[in-house]
């Protein structure tokens, strides 16, 4: 398993850099991921998405469908792509420290 330094500490990550231990996540980790993708300073809109993803993941053990994410947070699909450069799965889930769904998705 690969290791990655995030906000001054080493964490287990997968091949794509996703955190392998979601419970070790903290806000500094989200900021560190964002900086790697060129986003410095997270806005309330970012946090709203990240918090929704984390809460959903902790309750259901999987990320929600993106449609639900947009409806519940009020952040549109196009806005999600503006906020998270690699999109909801590859950026937002990663920054929130939760894994992307697998399978035919």
């Amino acid at each position: 398993m690969a290791q990655m330094e995030l906000a001054g500490k080493m964490y287990e990550v997968d091949e794509k850099g996703f955190l392998q231990e979601p419970e070790k996540w903290n806000e500094s980790i989200a900021e560190a991921y964002a900086e790697m993708e060129g986003v410095v300073g997270l806005t309330e809109e970012h946090w709203k998405v990240i918090r929704y993803l984390r809460d959903y993941y902790l309750e259901f053990d999987i990320c929600p469908m993106v449609r639900k994410l947009t409806k519940r947070t009020g952040v549109s699909l196009s806005r999600l792509w503006e906020l998270f450069p690699q999109g909801p799965a590859n950026s937002a889930c990663k920054w929130a420290g939760v894994p992307k769904p697998t399978g035919c998705v």
């Binding site: 259901f60 999987i62 469908m65 894994p99 697998t102 035919c104």
Partner: peptide, 16 residues
């Protein structure tokens, strides 16, 4: 499910 979706998450998605 191969998606990692549990029965509880499945029901939540269907409700949505």
């Amino acid at each position: 499910s191969s998606t990692g979706m549990t029965p509880v998450a499945f029901r939540d998605s269907i409700e949505f």
